[in-house]
Design a protein around this nucleic acid. Sequence first.
RNA 1: GGAGAGAUGGCUGAGUGGUUUAAGGCACACGCCUGGAAAGCGUGCGUAGGUAACACUACCGUGAGUUCAAAUCUCACUCUCUCCGCCA
Length: 434
Amino acid sequence: MLDIKLIRDKPDFVRQRLATRGAGDEKLIDGILQADDARRKALAEVETLKATRNRVSKEIGALMGQKKLPEAEAKKAETKTLGDKIAALDAEAKAADATRDELMLRLPNLPHESVALGKTAEDNPLVRTHGEKPSFAFKPKSHVELCQSLKLVDFERAVKLSGSGFLLYTNWGAKLERALIQYMLDLHTTQHGYTEVSPPYMVNEDCLVGVGQFPKFKDQYYGVAEGDKVEELGKLYLIPTAETPVANIHREELLAEKLLPIFYCAYTPCFRGEAGAAGLGTRGMIRVHQFDKVELIKIVKPEDGYAEQEKMVANAERVLQSLGMHYRVISLCTGDMGFGSAKTYDIEVWAAGQGSYLEVSSVSNCEDFQSRRMNMRFKTEAGENKFPHILNGSGTALARLFVALLETHQQADGSVLIPEPLQKYLGTSRIATA
RNA sequence: GGAGAGAUGGCUGAGUGGUUUAAGGCACACGCCUGGAAAGCGUGCGUAGGUAACACUACCGUGAGUUCAAAUCUCACUCUCUCCGCCA
């Protein structure tokens, strides 16, 4: 959520920054200003009436205390109609307030000034690349072929269980998935200063509103109900990312300044409806309804936000570097950035069998956009209450990393070499057909 | 699923219709005291809106209601805790 004062004071600036996203969000500003104005007018009026009522009520109380009943009754009659006017104006202010908030919650964050202007992914500037595309003396196989020949994933039976878009990892596939999760958690908690947390996989609506997934994108998530109680649908949702519960850990809290910065790291599965997503019906592991991810979250002072974002990207890159992967880092342009982000870096890992780069990490600084929605603040030493910057980044997403790992380290004989750091977690240096 | 208790500022905790302008305590900040500190004493100290600054308004889990006036009374709801039942 943006600061209403910023919208009030610099509406043209806000419109101009929103317009760079190319989604037409700047059109909401007029409605917001209108509702804000109506709210303020109604409040100014009703507050004056309330002041009168409070004053007279106190006089009545004093008169009653002195047993001057006739005078008290006269005062009562005087303020009798005040209540109705107050109620009407209160309702007016409340309605305007609701309208304003409804629009405010649908307004995306302003892109940071350093973000390149652009419309689509084609306009995303390349920041850097690491390593080179591996060369093969044979035609590299796709992960689907490798998973089948090495029996790492049973695509057909996963469909039987849950339909398309779900994966059944088997044998070394299941172990590799687990090894990757554990390796990344250990790396971030022992080398990068993050504290591990394991959050609920179902959260309430407030959490989704807090990070900006609701109300605008409500149709993309899985709601759950206990038993056959359809009326409970909408109370809890499967998390689309660990960001949803973890970023909300301190919602509605007033943190002591000395607690910052807070670094959290969490593994969770992620559940996404992916309604209308192209290619979901096809085989493979690139876009699925459920995948695993190790997520990084930082809650920091505003002045540290962007420096911490650079460090977070480096933390995610370290995973890929240590696994011997070729990847590139790109900076998302204004038109390609997510709803709550002010600045985002994507890390894309090379998948040789696919012959393409796969997004495995997205590192965003949402500035105070989310902390405002959550009413999460910290008190400075000067006694001022401020909204912290909240950052999130994948460190990294699985399934796609799994794919790139297989396709990068495949051998001519159809086996896959396991990078050294993973070997102790997996218990082998090579996965081969039995 | 059953029974009971509860929800008040950063924390704790009083408060059954009008000196509550939410007591007291803790924590915190500043001052006095001290060689320095602790203790003690004094002052300040909730959040948000509003104002040039005051004033003023709202907020005691949420939402309605009664009243001139609600933390306090009524109704509904949510959540938490304890015990019992079921259960990995």
